[in-house]
Deep mutational scan, measured.
Amino acid sequence: MQRVNMIMAESPGLITICLLGYLLSAECTVFLDHENANKILNRPKRYNSGKLEEFVQGNLERECMEEKCSFEEAREVFENTERTTEFWKQYVDGDQCESNPCLNGGSCKDDINSYECWCPFGFEGKNCELDVTCNIKNGRCEQFCKNSADNKVVCSCTEGYRLAENQKSCEPAVPFPCGRVSVSQTSKLTRAETVFPDVDYVNSTEAETILDNITQSTQSFNDFTRVVGGEDAKPGQFPWQVVLNGKVDAFCGGSIVNEKWIVTAAHCVETGVKITVVAGEHNIEETEHTEQKRNVIRIIPHHNYNAAINKYNHDIALLELDEPLVLNSYVTPICIADKEYTNIFLKFGSGYVSGWGRVFHKGRSALVLQYLRVPLVDRATCLRSTKFTIYNNMFCAGFHEGGRDSCQGDSGGPHVTEVEGTSFLTGIISWGEECAMKGKYGIYTKVSRYVNWIKEKTKLT
């Protein structure tokens, strides 16, 4: 034993070699072989497995989906700052455009905790909710729209109204504003409101030439003092309507412009014939205590009207009353817009006519005020429907199939267009061939041609 100890002390290297040989010859039971080890760690190889990531292109799944990435790591994937920024906006807080917040056709661009709407022409605001041009839906104005110097929408209202708090709607500024039905039992019968379409306001006024200088022999019209197929109006439903009495009662109609003036057809009036105007009328054979009678003290036909040349060209006249009318729910003026808007309103496509005229061709006159909704007829169809001249200051309205029309005794009465609950004068009943005849239409004086003249002559002093 002493000898062994001496050998170990003198030859430590020998001992180490012996131990190493023993270990190498022993069977290893701690580690699995290569094949079995792979069965336990069965993990798919990654895209760049075996390579240094710093030297390969980034992978979106590896960089940002398996674990949260930084902007720089995302930049490695896209290799483009702009594309990385677009991805980053949604990656950080989701897609803010998912709810489609942009209105009126706006395009949404996502941002971090926010979004941006790219608005089409005519709109602005956070969600493109603000109209900035009158060309689109009248700028959301209830009545009139004008573009300011910086191309912003400025709404306005006709006389007797003021802008509401929203700067879009119009509200009454006087007790009985024009064009409004205020009798409670008839307010439910107000005709369907007309909503502004998209309009090209630059070209809204037709490029028409008034044929002022045409000389033409007097034409022989049949029954051209021209509501057939209409309905009984309720008291106060058309408070701007008046009836004219002269040699015979209810020979023509008219509309209240203001307390002192009536507008009617020029062919209705004769110099030297006494005319009485009755406002607030409903049943011409009954006294309903809503009527107001006034005498006409002055007749002003349009300066281009000449019955000797043509009885229905420039067929418009103004009547001055001896005493002002007292405005109330049964006696209310009709609204008159400017030339541009009167023309736009007419193009809405349908209007209402009213009167006490004959209820059928050569038949009896109506006792109760009649009204009828009539569609506008395109000019080409209008011209083809008659052998008589249709001037540019006239328009056609009615039904091709016949059966409904204005008729004798309705002449001078109103053709009105309702705009968001307020009625505007767009025409004056003038003439036609018979009444409600198939293929024939009622012919009306186009008020847009005469609004400046009306307003100039009827100013209240």
Rank of each mutant, 00 (worst) to 15 (best):
A397F: 02
R3N: 09
K274G: 11
P197R: 09
N328H: 03
N393S: 14
G403Q: 13
N48Q: 10
K260S: 02
L60C: 03
T445F: 03
M65I: 14
D93L: 05
R404P: 15
S182W: 07
A266S: 03
L369E: 06
I300D: 02
N48L: 11
G21Q: 05
T225A: 09
A233H: 06
N258I: 00
I454H: 01
C268N: 01
P301K: 13
N245R: 11
F196V: 11
P333Q: 04
F251N: 07
Q167H: 11
E66M: 05
V269S: 04
F224C: 05
V228S: 11
T290K: 05
G357I: 09
Q57V: 10
V359S: 14
A307K: 11
G58S: 11
Q2W: 15
G21L: 14
N258T: 05
C145L: 00
N452I: 04
N310L: 04
E98C: 04
G246V: 05
N113R: 10
P235R: 08
N113G: 07
Q185A: 05
A307Q: 13
R62K: 04
H289S: 13
I17S: 03
S385D: 12
D110R: 06
C18Y: 04
Y450Q: 00
N80K: 13
M437I: 13
G160Y: 02
N452V: 06
K188H: 07
N203G: 11
L244S: 00
L327G: 02
A265D: 00
I344P: 02
A26M: 05
D405T: 15
D212F: 10
S169Q: 08
T225F: 07
R379N: 04
Q216R: 06
T422D: 00
S385I: 12
L163R: 03
L23F: 13
I454N: 01
C128T: 01
D111Q: 15
G229Y: 13
N245P: 03
E231A: 12
L41G: 15
V377K: 04
R404K: 02
L321E: 00
H267K: 05
G432Y: 12
L52F: 14
V419T: 05
V331F: 01
M437R: 13
N59F: 04
V326N: 09
W356N: 03
F144C: 00
S411R: 12
G363D: 09
A265S: 09
S365M: 12
Y450L: 01
T290G: 06
E281V: 14
G412C: 06
E10H: 12
E67T: 05
I136W: 08
Q2D: 07
P172I: 05
A265Y: 01
E116D: 12
P235D: 04
C28V: 02
E67Q: 03
L163S: 03
D410K: 14
G349M: 04
A149V: 12
N59V: 04
C252R: 01
K234H: 13
A436T: 14
N313I: 10
V416F: 10
P414H: 12
E420F: 13
N151W: 09
K68L: 06
V331W: 00
C396Q: 00
D200M: 06
R162A: 09
P44A: 12
V30G: 15
S350I: 07
G398Q: 05
P120V: 08
L163W: 01
R358V: 06
K440E: 14
L23W: 08
E193D: 13
N59I: 04
I40K: 15
I344S: 14
R404Q: 06
T422I: 14
N222I: 08
H400T: 14
Q143P: 00
V331L: 02
S107R: 13
E165H: 11
L321M: 07
N295Y: 07
P375T: 14
V195D: 13
E340N: 11
L460Q: 14
G427N: 00
S182E: 06
Y330W: 14
T29H: 13
K247V: 13
V248M: 07
E270L: 13
S430F: 04
S70I: 05
V243E: 02
Q90D: 11
T386M: 14
E286C: 05
R373A: 11
P172E: 05
Q237W: 10
T389L: 12
K51C: 04
Q219V: 08
F87V: 15
T389E: 10
V374P: 04
A436V: 05
S99M: 05
T271N: 14
T386R: 09
I17P: 03
V277H: 00
K446L: 03
E53Y: 05
K311A: 09
D93S: 06
D131M: 14
L23P: 03
P375I: 11
Y371N: 09
S25G: 09
G105M: 04
F121S: 15
S217T: 11
R83Q: 15
L376G: 02
P333C: 02
T342S: 14
T186Q: 13
S406M: 14
R191M: 12
C157S: 00
N283W: 08
G50E: 05
N393F: 04
I309K: 11
K274N: 12
G253V: 12
R191Y: 07
Y450G: 01
G442Q: 14
I334A: 03
Y441K: 02
R162T: 11
P175M: 10
K455E: 05
K68D: 06
K109W: 04
N127P: 01
V243Q: 07
A380E: 10
R384L: 09
S385P: 03
C407R: 05
H400A: 14
L327K: 04
K39T: 10
V4F: 13
F395A: 01
V326W: 07
V30M: 13
K438P: 14
N151Q: 09
